[in-house]
Structure formats: C-alpha cells, structure tokens
Design a protein around this nucleic acid. Structure first.
Length: 434
DNA sequence: TCTGGGGTCCTAGGACCC
DNA sequence: TCTGGGGTCCTAGGACCC
C-alpha cells in the first residue's frame, strides 16, 4: 500500500462548464442549456462547409453527436436542432464573469484559469467559510453560477489537482449532481477500475499504445508496474503516469507562475491549395504581421521565430512528409519587418515547390518589452485603468489562444487577412454585448 | 475522420566550450 | 589526429490538451 502521509493534502476543485459555447448560446436565447438541442457551428471559409465547435447535451443524446469537433455533414437537417454561429468574444466575456464568481470563494492567487471553460480552485484555506463540507461548497458555487449566468457547471473535487481533474473527467460529467470526488483514500475504487487508458487526462492514442506494448492495459496495471522499469522505458513521462495511477500530484500550483516556455502564434488552413511562391509568401507575411502586432500588444519581444508549412495531400504523398517546421533564433524583436524577414528566409531555405495548404507562424523565447507608455492627453489614472483591463483580457486570451486583436489588411492576391479579420481563433467573434 | 486554431512540455542529437 | 568528461545552447520532432 502506498503511504500518502507526506503527500500534499488540500481541497481542490476543478470546475468546468457543461458544453460551454452551446450553453452560452442557449441561455442568450432564453432556453435551458440542458434541454435544448443546439450546436454551435463555425462556417469560416476554410472549414470546408462548417465545423461543429460545441454540442448541447440534449443534441448529443438525440442525434448521437459525440465528438465536440465534427463536421457539418454529420449534423442532421432538423428544425428541432438549432444551428447557430459562434460568438467567441461573448464566450470570453462569460469566462471572465464566471471567474469573478469563483473569486468570491477563493483568493485570487488560489484561482488558476486553465482554459476557456475550466478553472482550478484551491479551497484549502477557504472552504470552511462557505459550507459544512467541500461538496457543500461545490453545490453553492454551482447554484451561484446557475442563478447569475444561467450556466451549469461541473465540479471535480480532490485532495490535489490531479485528483480533482480525474474526478471531473471520469465522474462529475456523468453524475446527476455534476459533482465527482477522488481522495487518497478512494484511489483504488475510483482510479484503478478505469479500463480505457485514453479516458485519462494526459494519455492519448500514442501513449496508450506505448503502455499496451509494455503490457499495461488499464489503470490498475499501471499502478502495479515496477516504477523504475517504467521510468527506464518512458522517462519522466513514466514517472508522472505512475504517480497519476496512485492519485499523486506534487505540483505546487501557487508556487509556479506562468509557463516555462511561453509562445505566441497563429496558424491557418488555407481555403484552397496554394501553388505560387508569391501567394504563399503573401500569407506568410500576413500571418507574421499579425503575430508581430500581437507581440507588441502584449509588450513582448520574440527571440525565436518558427514557420510551419503543411503541404496539400497530393504534395504530401509525393514528398513523403506532410510539410516542414523550422525555427530560428533572432535578436529579440516585435517588429513586422524583422519577423517577416526571418519567416521568408525559413520558407525559401526549406520550400521546394510543394503545394501548400497550411501555414503556421509561432514565436517563442518571449521577453518583456517596454513598460506602459503614458500619453499626454489623458489623465494617467484612466490610462492605467485601461491598460489593466486590457491586461486581464490579454491574460485570458493569451492563455487560451483566442486572440486576434489587430487586423492586418492586404489587397494582395492570395491574402486571407481581410476575410479573417473579424475572426477570433479562426471563428466568428460576434459581439460581446448581446 | 481529405485539413480548426492556439498552446505547453519533453526528448535527443549536434555544436561548441572549458 | 582510433574514444575524456561535463556542461550549455540550439533545433527538430513528438505528444497532448482545450
């Protein structure tokens, strides 16, 4: 038996929103998010007829639409099924409101937004203020969000973050109260019976295959391998997987601030195959300029630029690879010209005439640029306040990648910027103020 | 799954330095 | 110039998440 005595014991919640985009759209129309059949479908020109971004629980049940990301062609034509366009800006606004509610229950430093619809709350020091048990507090948070925003939230509770995450994914989503709990004392009954390794956070197809090859097919078997052998076979990943099978998580959330290697970039699937060098370079330039302007907006400079080029299917087959991805160190900069020059160099050094369908530009090794520049024409307080507000939105958008703040424009043939200017994360931004 | 988009983290080999 | 060893930096590539 594992001795958990020296493991960190706390009260952690992982809270997410049930079918977030679909629920926000349902509420905006005055419908109950759990009862209405609704899908949110992006119809950006490169989605090949439409991409389903979110499906309400009822629609999943009635039309057997399981995967969240599916294609328009899989969506039945039925007047009972509402099909609505996305409004990314509205979802960002709701996310901020939900986190504001969470801050009534935890100090700011004990709240960690994890994605557009998930947050981690460390209630170790505050839960007793709000209920007789952590579960009580979870119910109270759920009721508050439901009452004020109309949205249903799902809560995973654990003694540490990974237990909370597994409780959310494995149990809360299927529980009538939308609450799941895992504790050190319940690891054998809650984690080990998991038979599909890919149900577990952090294990996808490749890792599951790898584990299968080692004779590990479920969480019980993972928990009972020799951890040293697993480490030898899979390195750090093996250690982490073994720890997870025992519900162990030594990450100190409040002690780590920000990611180790921040990066920022944009990518897009082109609406058609691009053949001409000039046209491809026009897109690279546009995307590069978007990324550069985002850097400036965030007061960051990049010390590394990377270019990813995906070939068309035909070109991939002929070439034997799907494309290429190259990066390059540069002197830290946020200037269009320097970033685009590096990208074009990467492109010309690696491109050999292949037809292109996908362009990705990323920057990394980000470092702080200048501080806030105050102008002379406005009261300083107002400027600082605005900068702070921007910063909050930035932090959210940065973290979740829903930024498309500066709208490059181009009349060059092949350009996609104009068409994409109003998109957020490649999808319709809509209006935040419904 | 004939192309969504934005991220983070880990590994491994080569170059280079002392 | 037929195996030194330890360390850092750089880049490519893989894997996974929401």
């Amino acid at each position: 038996m594992m001795n958990y005595q020296n493991e960190p014991h706390g009260v952690f919640f992982l809270i997410d929103n049930k079918s977030f985009y679909a629920s926000v759209e349902a509420v905006a129309r005055g419908w109950n998010p759990l009862k209405i059949s609704l899908v949110v479908m992006s119809e950006a020109s490169n989605t090949n007829g439409g991409l389903v971004l979110a499906t309400s629980p009822e629609a999943k049940k009635r039309y057997h639409l399981q995967a969240n990301v599916s294609r328009a062609r899989e969506v039945p034509q039925d007047p009972q099924l509402a099909v609505v366009p996305p409004r990314m800006n509205l979802y960002i606004k709701r996310n901020l409101q939900i986190n504001d509610i969470f801050r009534r229950f935890v100090a700011n430093e004990d709240l960690m937004p994890y994605s557009i619809d998930e947050s981690i709350l460390d209630l170790t020091h505050s839960w007793q203020l709000f209920g007789k048990s952590p579960r009580d507090v979870a119910v109270r948070i759920q009721k508050t969000v439901r009452r004020e925003l109309g949205l249903y939230t799902t809560v995973g509770i654990g003694d540490n973050p990974v237990q909370a995450k597994l409780a959310l994914d494995l149990y809360a989503k299927h529980d009538t109260d939308l609450i799941g709990e895992i504790h050190y004392s319940t690891v054998p009954e809650k984690i080990w019976p998991v038979n599909h390794l890919t149900d577990v956070w952090g294990i996808a197809h490749r890792t599951a295959d790898h584990l299968n090859r080692l004779g590990i097919h479920n969480m019980y078997e993972l928990a009972h391998v020799d951890p040293y052998e697993l480490k030898g076979e899979m390195g750090l990943m093996g250690q982490q997987l073994y720890a997870m099978a025992w519900g162990i998580d030594r990450s100190q959330l409040n002690k780590r601030r920000g990611p180790k290697n921040a990066s920022l970039g944009n990518s897009q699937v082109l609406p058609r195959d691009y053949v001409k060098q000039k046209e491809i370079e026009t897109v690279i330039k546009e995307v590069g300029e978007q990324v550069a302007s985002r850097l400036r907006h965030h007061h960051k400079q990049a010390g590394c630029v990377s270019l990813g080029i995906g070939f068309s299917y035909a070109a991939s087959e002929a070439d034997g690879r799907g494309g290429f991805h190259q990066e390059m160190r540069i002197a830290p900069t946020d200037q269009n010209g320097e970033i685009v020059a590096a990208l074009i160099r990467l492109f010309r050094n690696n491109w050999d005439g292949q037809t292109v369908r996908n362009v990705a530009v990323y920057t990394s090794r980000l470092c702080a640029s200048t501080g806030l520049q105050l102008n002379f024409f406005e009261p300083a307080q107002a400027q600082i306040k605005r900068a702070k507000t921007d910063h909050v939105v930035d932090a959210i958008r940065d973290r979740f990648g829903f930024t498309r703040l500066v709208y490059a424009s181009s009349l060059q043939k092949g350009g996609t910027a104009i068409e994409r200017a109003s998109l957020v994360g490649g999808h319709n931004g809509g209006n935040a103020y419904e």
